[in-house]
């Protein structure tokens, strides 16, 4: 449906480097990356607002790399809505109907239908200056959807909304997708990616570094960047060594981590979930084979409890409850012991 082949573009302080990916018909494709990773630039290139230096863009098997912006069937919704401030909501939605062979009544009906679908049917005569962020986002969506684009390009559509409105708009986007709309959505929020995407590509410094289904990307992060970015903190590059039939993963600073794997010796990554790490104030006997003394670096509250970062030669992050934190009396700068089972360590060969 949409295929980018080795798209490159050089700017003064940034460049896209051979960006390639394919969005199939009916996909909800998420392009995930930090601010400044080049996500918006990719969307603008697909929409035709930025001409690539090299590479090709195919939309429905047609090469649209040099096609005029207005002739592409790609509808772009901007991050800050870009609703025209001097036109009513109705005029905004009807903007792209100009030049179509439709009567005034037919145009009105189309605008009304899409506005009702998006829950803004009663706002058609209002000026954008009087609308909330969520309403503006719906106007921007309606204005784009009315053109029936082959692909809907969304640039961080939820970033400026509060939590409640985010939920509402996510439901709306899911329902638009369920009706068969192919969507390419860029975001920096991996939760958003998990909640909406059928496919995910991770972009960093203008390069796609991993792509696949959400499960593939989140369970098999292909690099330290991806792992950190998607919220997995305990992710280390290691060398696998088997000594006396026991397998150790040696980190860059030679800390040996016991692991259970059938993989052969070589380089790879290990991944330990914060929930699988136990903490204790004194050394204790457990079934865990990895036991390290360490210093508490930082204690950060999160919605479920606290994340405790411990420097045990490698920096590990444990997720524990507030009760446990109080029971152990942990404080930044204090000492503690870290325990985790060899079976809790996931090894990903390079």
């Amino acid at each position: 449906m949409l295929e980018l082949r080795k798209i490159s573009k050089r700017f003064a302080d940034f460049s896209l480097k051979e960006v390639s990916f394919t969005v199939e018909r009916g996909d909800y494709f998420i392009l995930l990356g930090e601010s400044g990773a080049g996500k918006s630039m990719v969307l603008e290139t697909i929409a035709g607002l930025v001409a690539p230096d090299s590479g090709s863009i195919f939309l429905d098997k047609k090469d649209v790399t040099t096609e005029k912006i207005q002739d592409r069937k790609a509808g772009l919704v901007f991050q800050d809505h870009a609703v025209f401030p001097h036109m009513t909501v109705g005029e905004n939605i009807a903007y792209s109907l100009h030049g179509l062979k439709l009567t005034k009544e037919e145009k009105k009906e189309k605008v009304r239908a899409i506005a009702i679908e998006l829950g803004i049917g009663d706002l058609l005569l209002r000026m954008p200056g009087t609308l909330s962020g969520g309403e503006l986002q719906r106007v921007a969506l309606g204005r784009t959807l009315i053109q029936q684009p082959q692909i809907l390009l969304l640039d961080e559509p939820l970033s400026s909304l509060d939590t409640r409105l985010k939920g509402d708009l996510r439901r709306l986007l899911r329902s638009i997708h369920r009706k068969g709309q192919t969507i390419l959505h860029v975001t920096h929020d991996y939760e958003e990616a998990l909640s909406l995407g059928t496919h995910i590509a991770v972009i960093d410094k203008g390069t796609i570094i991993q792509s696949g289904t959400p499960s593939e990307v989140f369970h098999h992060p292909g690099s330290e960047f991806v792992a950190h970015f998607i919220g997995i903190r305990n992710f280390f590059a290691v060398s696998l060594v088997t000594e006396n039939q026991i397998t150790f993963a040696y980190t860059f600073n030679k800390i040996p981590v016991r692991i259970v794997t059938e993989a052969k010796e070589g380089d790879g990554f290990i991944l330990i979930r914060g929930e699988d790490i136990l903490l204790s104030a004194v050394p204790v006997e457990t079934s865990a084979t990895n036991n390290f003394p360490g210093t508490v670096v930082e204690i950060v509250p999160n919605s479920g409890g606290v994340d405790v970062t411990i420097d045990a030669g490698i920096e590990l992050q444990a997720r524990i409850t507030r009760e446990s934190l109080e029971k152990l009396g942990l404080k930044a700068g204090g000492t503690c012991w870290v325990h985790f089972k060899a079976t809790a360590v996931k090894y990903i060969p390079r």
Binding site: L49, I69, Q70, S96
Partner: peptide, 27 residues
Amino acid sequence: VPVRLEKAARTLGASPQRVFFTISLPL
């Protein structure tokens, strides 16, 4: 006049002339 409004109009199928007369000039 924010450039992104002109860009948005282009992606909504407007020619550069229409963008000038319906977006840039009125704003």
